[in-house]
Amino acid sequence: MPSVTHRTAPTRFAEADGVRYAYRRLGSGGEVPLVLLQHFTGNLDNWDPALVDALAADREVILVDYPGVSSSTGTPARTVATMAHQMIAFTTALGLDRVDVLGFSIGGFVAQDMALIRPRLIRRLVLAGTGPKGAPGMHGWREDIETHARAEAPTGEDLLYIFFAHTETSQAKGVEFLGRFMERTEDRDVPSSLESRDAQYDAVLEWGIPDHSALQRLTGIQCPTLVIQGDDDLMIPTRGSHLMAGLIPDARIRIYPDAAHAFLFQYPAEVAKDVNEFLG
């Protein structure tokens, strides 16, 4: 394992377009760095340390907060397109002209737009627990999921409900994840604000407005793509992954059993192995 881990990597800052981006870098190797784009309201410490450290064993990994989220300054974006331009600006601020990107959930929305807006920037793309713009079932979340996801002070119970399948085995893996992601006790990222929560949900809703023609955008993604998801995602329908894998010209798909939205936190070792093999 790398000497610097998810638990010990220092929080750094990069300036671009008046925004001070909070980020962390760890690991080494790989042809290009792997940038991880976080889920709805997530910050640097909402990643599973087991997943991040396993990815960083083979390559350099970069975590980042979107503008206006947690330790990054600026105004939170209300559209995915704006978030994509912000993440492109962040890579420019770090002097990166070629990256791999793993986008989880809303981060996968952003990653798709990045691949379309700057096709030469992204070498390989991983779309995790996400879905295509305008697809059926993407226009917001069902009521129980929205209630837990938009809680003013989210609890471990909220995360278990929305992230893990409602089975004994998946929920038990979720409890293990809750223990891991609280391991870091020093220099933890600050919680995201209600303002960023509401802005990001606006972005989720705008992305999901039914629009069959928007699916054709996927045919413009030029880079090799790995689509991964749990078999019973309660936030973003798993069938959307099959749509993406069918429409992106150079795509492959892997669905993980007995898993929901946070399958990559339920199976961190397996997902890291699959991702590293794909990127390698």
Rank of each mutant, 00 (worst) to 15 (best):
G42K: 04
N43S: 11
L44C: 12
W47G: 07
D48F: 06
P49H: 06
L51A: 04
V52K: 04
D53I: 02
D53R: 08
A54E: 08
A54F: 05
A54S: 15
A54V: 07
L55E: 13
L55D: 11
L55V: 07
D58T: 13
D58N: 13
R59Q: 10
E60P: 11
I62Y: 08
L63I: 07
Y66I: 08
P67S: 00
S71E: 14
G74P: 01
A77F: 02
T79M: 06
V80L: 05
V80Y: 01
A81L: 11
A81E: 13
T82W: 07
A84M: 03
H85M: 14
Q86P: 10
M87N: 11
M87R: 06
I88D: 10
A89R: 05
T91G: 07
L94S: 10
L94A: 09
G95N: 11
D97S: 15
R98G: 03
R98T: 13
V99P: 06
V99S: 10
D100R: 13
D100P: 05
L102G: 00
G103R: 04
G103M: 03
G103V: 14
G103A: 08
F104I: 09
F104T: 05
S105Y: 02
I106R: 06
G107E: 03
G107M: 03
G108Y: 10
F109M: 14
V110Q: 10
A111Y: 01
D113Y: 14
M114H: 01
A115W: 00
A115H: 01
A115E: 11
L116P: 03
L116M: 15
R118P: 07
P119R: 12
R120P: 05
L121H: 00
L121A: 06
I122W: 04
L125W: 02
V126F: 02
V126Q: 04
L127T: 05
L127F: 04
A128Y: 05
G131R: 13
A135R: 09
A135G: 07
G137C: 05
M138R: 12
M138N: 06
H139P: 01
H139D: 14
G140Y: 04
G140N: 09
W141S: 12
R142H: 13
E143N: 00
D144Y: 08
I145N: 11
I145Y: 09
A149E: 12
R150L: 13
A151C: 06
E152G: 00
